[in-house]
Measured scan of single mutants.
Amino acid sequence: RQGFVPAAYVKKLDSGTGKELVLALYDYQEKSPREVTMKKGDILTLLNSTNKDWWKVEVN
């Protein structure tokens, strides 16, 4: 499932696989259909980080 999360809630990881991955630093509950819920410690695939406030991710 793809959607947006606050950029301040995730940290980029060095995956070494060519995929950009991020680590969820905090729990986040989606507040609109365009967002996704994540739990602290989740590893997500980063799809787009051009917006400084909201990053598009895919929940694996």
Results as ranks from 00 to 15, higher is better:
residue 26 Y to Q: 14
residue 46 L to P: 00
residue 53 D to I: 15
residue 18 G to W: 08
residue 50 T to P: 03
residue 25 L to Q: 05
residue 5 V to T: 01
residue 34 R to W: 15
residue 10 V to C: 13
residue 9 Y to L: 14
residue 45 T to W: 13
residue 45 T to P: 13
residue 1 R to W: 07
residue 25 L to E: 04
residue 17 T to N: 15
residue 26 Y to H: 12
residue 22 V to K: 00
residue 16 G to W: 11
residue 26 Y to C: 13
residue 59 V to S: 14
residue 12 K to L: 11
residue 58 E to A: 11
residue 31 K to C: 10
residue 55 W to V: 06
residue 2 Q to I: 13
residue 51 N to K: 06
residue 17 T to E: 14
residue 8 A to M: 12
residue 14 D to T: 13
residue 24 A to C: 10
residue 60 N to A: 12
residue 15 S to M: 13
residue 23 L to P: 00
residue 48 N to F: 06
residue 38 M to N: 00
residue 27 D to Y: 04
residue 57 V to G: 00
residue 37 T to A: 07
residue 60 N to P: 15
residue 49 S to Y: 08
residue 35 E to A: 06
residue 19 K to E: 12
residue 15 S to I: 12
residue 43 I to C: 05
residue 42 D to A: 07
residue 41 G to R: 02
residue 49 S to M: 10
residue 8 A to C: 13
residue 23 L to S: 05
residue 52 K to V: 11
residue 5 V to Y: 00
residue 42 D to W: 11
residue 16 G to D: 15
residue 47 L to E: 02
residue 5 V to Q: 01
residue 58 E to T: 07
residue 2 Q to N: 08
residue 5 V to W: 01
residue 27 D to V: 03
residue 20 E to F: 11
residue 55 W to I: 05
residue 40 K to G: 05
residue 59 V to F: 09
residue 38 M to H: 02
residue 47 L to I: 15
residue 28 Y to L: 01
residue 32 S to K: 07
residue 1 R to Y: 07
residue 39 K to W: 09
residue 55 W to F: 07
residue 2 Q to D: 05
residue 30 E to M: 12
residue 18 G to V: 10
residue 18 G to L: 09
residue 47 L to K: 05
residue 23 L to F: 08
residue 8 A to F: 09
residue 45 T to A: 10
residue 44 L to R: 00
residue 7 A to W: 02
residue 6 P to T: 02
residue 41 G to S: 03
residue 58 E to S: 08
residue 14 D to A: 12
residue 54 W to Q: 02
residue 57 V to K: 00
residue 35 E to T: 07
residue 18 G to D: 12
residue 43 I to T: 06
residue 60 N to R: 13
residue 29 Q to P: 06
residue 50 T to A: 12
residue 31 K to H: 09
residue 13 L to M: 12
residue 56 K to Q: 12
residue 47 L to P: 00
residue 34 R to V: 12
residue 23 L to C: 10
residue 14 D to P: 15
residue 48 N to V: 08
residue 44 L to K: 00
residue 34 R to L: 14
residue 31 K to L: 09
residue 39 K to Y: 11
residue 10 V to G: 01
residue 47 L to W: 03
residue 44 L to Y: 11
residue 34 R to S: 14
residue 15 S to D: 12
residue 24 A to V: 08
residue 36 V to E: 01
residue 1 R to V: 08
residue 46 L to C: 05
residue 31 K to Q: 14
residue 51 N to T: 06
residue 16 G to M: 13
residue 2 Q to G: 06
residue 12 K to S: 05
residue 33 P to V: 10
residue 10 V to F: 05
residue 3 G to I: 04
residue 21 L to N: 05
residue 28 Y to Q: 00
residue 54 W to R: 03
residue 7 A to N: 02
residue 57 V to H: 00
residue 30 E to F: 06
residue 41 G to P: 00
residue 48 N to Y: 06
residue 41 G to N: 06
residue 26 Y to W: 10
residue 18 G to M: 10
residue 12 K to D: 04
residue 20 E to Q: 15
residue 54 W to F: 07
residue 29 Q to K: 12
residue 30 E to T: 09
residue 43 I to E: 03
residue 59 V to Q: 14
residue 57 V to M: 01
residue 54 W to K: 02
residue 15 S to K: 11
residue 44 L to G: 05
